[in-house]
Design a protein around this nucleic acid. Structure first.
Lengths: 183, 183
DNA sequence: CTCAGAAGTTAATGACCACTAACAAAACAG
DNA sequence: CTGTTTTGTTAGTGGTCATTAACTTCTGAG
C-alpha cells in the first residue's frame, strides 16, 4: 500500500525502541508509535499483537544480540575480557536507546517473555563472571556484584549529555572498566 | 480528621518516590499514590497542586540533599574524593528508589523546576570534577565523562537483584570507583 | 484482468486517568 | 460550646488510550 519499505516490522521496532528510550513505555502511545513510521496507530496491529508484544520483541532482540555475540567473541579471543569490553562498549555507544530500554522496561514485558529475557541477561552476566573470576579470583557474589557495577558504568553513556565522541569515549570506558574489575 | 500522621506531605513524598521508582511516573496513578498512604486519590490535591508538582518536589529534594551534603563533606575532609565516594555510596545504598527516580524521571518534571534540578545536578558533578581533576589531571571533558561513568557505577546498585549486603557492597564500590577514576 | 490476501484507513468502544466540585467531619482557637 | 480552617470523602467531567470493527486500497499470482 503506497509505502515502499521492505520490512515494516523492523522499521517499527527501531522507532519504538527510540521512543520507549526517550519517554518510557507508558509515556508513548500507539498513535505516536505509528506516526513515527508514517502510519496511524491501529495499523500496528497488522504487525504486532499489541503494545506489550512490541516491547517484548525489542527486549528479546537486545538480550539475544548482547548475549550471543558476547559469548562468541569471548570464546574466540585470546583476551576474553578485552573482547567482552570491546563488544559491550561498541554496542552501548552504537545503540544508546537499546541500552536504555533494556535497563528500564523489563517490568512492562509480559511474564513469559520477561522470563526469557531474564534468562538471557543472567547468562550474559555469568559469562562475564566466568571471565572476570578467572582473572581476579574472589568469592562469586563479589565478582557478580562487581560485574553488575561495571555494567552500570558502561551503560551510563546514553544519559551522558556530556558525551565525548565515541573515538575518545571508547578507550576511556575500556580503561576504567578494566581498572575497576581488576582492582 | 482521624489520621494521626504528623506530616502528611513528607509521608506522601516518600511513598511516591518508592512507587515512581518501581513503576515509573506514567505507570502510577494518583489513586495508587493516595492508597499508598491510606487516602483516596483526590485527597492529595490538599497537599500538592498536581502529580507533576509532586514529582518535582521529590526530585528537588534529592538534588539538594546530594549536592549540599556532598559539597559540605568534601570541603571538610582531608580526603575529598574519599568523602564524596562515602557520601554518594551511603546515599545510593540507603535510598535506592531515590536514585532511580533521580536518574529516570527528570523529563517529567515541569520546565521551571527541571531547570533548577539540572542546575543542582551540574553543580554536584562539577564538585566531583574539581576533586578528581586535582588528583588525576586530564582534559576537562575526559574528567567529566569519567565522573559521569562512575555515577553509573555507583548508581547501579538499585537494580542489583544480586545485592551483597551493604556492609560488603560499600567497600567494593569504593575500591572500584577509586580505581576507575585514577586509572 | 481478476481476485484474494496483506496492509492500510476511519470510526467506535470501554477503561482509566488527572483533576474539580460539592459536601462532611476533625481540629482547634476563642 | 461555637464557628472557621484543614483535611478528607464521593461523584462527576473531559480527555486519552489500547484495542476492535468495518471498510478500502494496494499488490502480486495465476
Amino acid at each position: 500500500m503506497g509505502t515502499p519499505t521492505q520490512d515494516r516490522r523492523a522499521q517499527i521496532l527501531i522507532a519504538a525502541a527510540d521512543l520507549f528510550a526517550r519517554r518510557g513505555y507508558h509515556g508513548v502511545s500507539i498513535g505516536e508509535l505509528g506516526a513515527a513510521v508514517g502510519l496511524t496507530g491501529p495499523a500496528l496491529y497488522r504487525h504486532f499483537r499489541g503494545k506489550e508484544d512490541l516491547l517484548a520483541e525489542v527486549l528479546l532482540d537486545i538480550s539475544v544480540r548482547l548475549h550471543d555475540e558476547g559469548v562468541r567473541r569471548a570464546a574466540e579471543s585470546p583476551d576474553p575480557l578485552g573482547a567482552l569490553l570491546d563488544w559491550h562498549i561498541a554496542f552501548a555507544l552504537g545503540n544508546p536507546s537499546l541500552i536504555t530500554v533494556h535497563e528500564r522496561e523489563l517490568d512492562n514485558v509480559p511474564a513469559p517473555q520477561r522470563r526469557e529475557v531474564r534468562r538471557l541477561q543472567r547468562a550474559y552476566l555469568e559469562e562475564w563472571v566466568r571471565v572476570v573470576g578467572a582473572l581476579n579470583p574472589r568469592p562469586e557474589d563479589q565478582t557478580r556484584a562487581a560485574v553488575h557495577a561495571v555494567f552500570g558504568l558502561l551503560n551510563s553513556t546514553p544519559y551522558s549529555a556530556v558525551t565525548l565522541d565515541p573515538a575518545a569515549m571508547s578507550p576511556l570506558l575500556r580503561t576504567m572498566a578494566r581498572a575497576a574489575l581488576l582492582a
